Simulated scan of single mutants.
Amino acid sequence: MQITRTPATTTTASSEWVTGTVYVTPVAAAGDTSRLRIDDVRFEPGGRTHWHRHPGGQVLHITEGTGLVQRRGGPAEVVRAGDRVVIAPGEWHWHGAGPTTSMTHLAVLTAAEDGTEAERGEPVTDACYPAGPVL
């Protein structure tokens, strides 16, 4: 058993993966003994991931605020604190804050056997991102 009492380091997410301001705090990293990865991710208003997919799928547990999740071919859906979103393996999607609201979630995924955690797609453009308030 490993108990960590020192706070994890929060970093700003790379613009290669997100639009806007997004902060990532690792909770558990995939490594030699586990392929599980958990991150605490905070999206400032307008912040969002690019389209992406995970070989093992992903679970998002919304812990604060109000945001959006969209699966390829479907509408953007509003998510709120307490919601849980299950993304199927290989499903293209994006997630993030609303235009005027912040959102924080725990992102849980299992890396593929070769260590791959995600495949990045194109950015979610302002033209495709909902412009109105998220209720």
Rank of each mutant, 00 (worst) to 15 (best):
V59T: 08
I3Y: 07
A81D: 13
V86R: 09
T25Y: 09
L135F: 01
C128K: 13
G73C: 02
G115C: 02
A13Y: 14
I62C: 12
I62L: 13
G47Q: 10
T21Y: 00
T125M: 03
T10E: 15
T4K: 13
G74Q: 11
P99K: 09
G115L: 01
T33W: 03
R84W: 07
E119I: 13
G121T: 04
E119R: 00
T49S: 10
V69I: 08
D39L: 11
V108K: 13
Q70P: 13
H52P: 13
P7V: 05
D40K: 15
A112V: 02
I87D: 07
P89M: 06
T25C: 02
T100Y: 09
H95D: 04
S102Y: 11
I87R: 02
V108R: 15
V69N: 05
D32T: 13
G47I: 08
T6I: 13
G67F: 02
W92Q: 03
I3M: 07
P45L: 01
G31R: 10
R84T: 12
R84M: 12
P133W: 00
G90S: 06
R53Y: 03
D114G: 01
W92A: 02
L109V: 03
G67I: 02
V79M: 07
A118L: 08
P99G: 10
A29Q: 14
V18E: 09
A29K: 15
V78Q: 14
G31N: 12
R72C: 14
T100D: 13
R48S: 08
D32H: 13
T12E: 15
T100H: 12
T116G: 06
D39Q: 14
V79L: 05
A29V: 12
Q70G: 06
T101H: 01
H93P: 03
R5T: 14
T9P: 01
G20D: 12
W94P: 01
T110W: 08
T9C: 04
T12A: 15
D39M: 14
E113M: 03
V79A: 07
E117M: 10
C128G: 06
P130S: 01
V85F: 11
L60F: 10
E91V: 11
D83G: 08
S15G: 09
